[in-house]
């Protein structure tokens, strides 16, 4: 079977063109420019053109470059883990919960540990929602409890247990030095230790979180940039209904 490799596209199929922008701790000049070119060469690139050089002062320079790669990939061989449940709007999700579960479901959410940035959890949970999608608080069949920022993992789990939550939503926005991985791992380990892991869905979200990463960390699902309340609510409703059907 013939492989259909695809390559980066500039203006001609298979030209392999890629745009680069990076900085080096060196002043602007021919030596800096050559350093930038060599770094791209070491990456295996060809037709390297350093088209922009910006003095960042203090001994730093930014380089803007174009280059060609011979790397290619066969999309038919790619497997990624994605959240596969269909996405319903708020009304459809409410109706789905009513008919398939016949009760209100409880979702407890928080930005855990050191993370003080509620923008993600708020976009998903707050009444108002984000970009024309109402948040979970607005759903008739969802009891949404948003604990806000800097919530200790222990507190989130305690609340989830008290509320008999169906799902836990964790947001992690700050990712410097992989702090989000540490925080998410801590929560899941505590949940395992307390026997809560199998009691409810564990879902995480944030700009640097993918479904694949979430699965790897032991969560049921992960939602990255571009996810809306509708994605999360549909996933929860359909997954819970599926679990119920199996039980």
């Amino acid at each position: 079977m013939k492989k259909e490799l695809i390559r980066p596209y500039g203006d001609t199929l298979n030209d392999g063109k890629i745009q680069f922008s990076f900085s080096l701790p060196i002043g602007p000049g021919e030596i800096g420019k050559e350093a930038a070119r060599i770094i791209l060469k070491q990456l295996g690139l060809e037709d390297i053109e350093i088209c922009g050089m910006r003095d960042l002062k203090g001994g730093f320079t930014q380089f803007i470059a174009y280059a060609s790669t011979s790397a290619g990939v066969d999309p038919a061989e790619i497997k990624v883990k994605t959240v596969d449940t269909p996405v319903m709007d708020m009304e459809a999700t409410d109706e789905f919960i009513a008919s398939h579960l016949g009760r209100e479901i409880t979702v407890v959410g928080a930005c855990i540990e050191s993370d003080a940035h509620t923008v993600g959890i708020d976009a998903i949970m707050n009444m108002k929602g984000y970009n024309h999608r109402y948040g979970l608080e607005r759903y008739q069949y969802i009891n949404a409890i948003n604990l806000g920022a800097q919530v200790a993992s222990e507190d989130l789990l305690r609340r989830a247990r008290d509320e008999k939550a169906d799902a836990i939503l964790v947001s992690q926005v700050v990712t410097q030095k992989n702090i989000h991985i540490k925080n998410l791992t801590k929560l899941i380990e505590l949940a395992e230790a307390e026997g809560l892991r199998s009691q409810m869905l564990f879902i995480c979200g944030g700009p640097r979180i993918s479904h694949e990463l979430a699965i790897e960390l032991g969560y049921d699902a992960g939602f990255g940039t571009g996810s809306y309340s509708t994605d999360v609510a549909s996933y929860i409703a359909i997954t819970l209904a599926g679990q119920r059907a199996k039980a």
Binding site: L56, K57, G58, F60, E113, S114, A116, H117, Q150
Partner: peptide, 24 residues
């Protein structure tokens, strides 16, 4: 290093953002 570079480029005010948990 970054603040000095920014000031040399024309920044008038440098804010050092705090570590995320410090307010509490």
């Amino acid at each position: 290093k970054q603040a000095k570079a920014a000031a040399l480029e024309g920044a008038d005010i440098i804010a050092v953002i705090r570590s995320t948990a410090q307010s509490l």
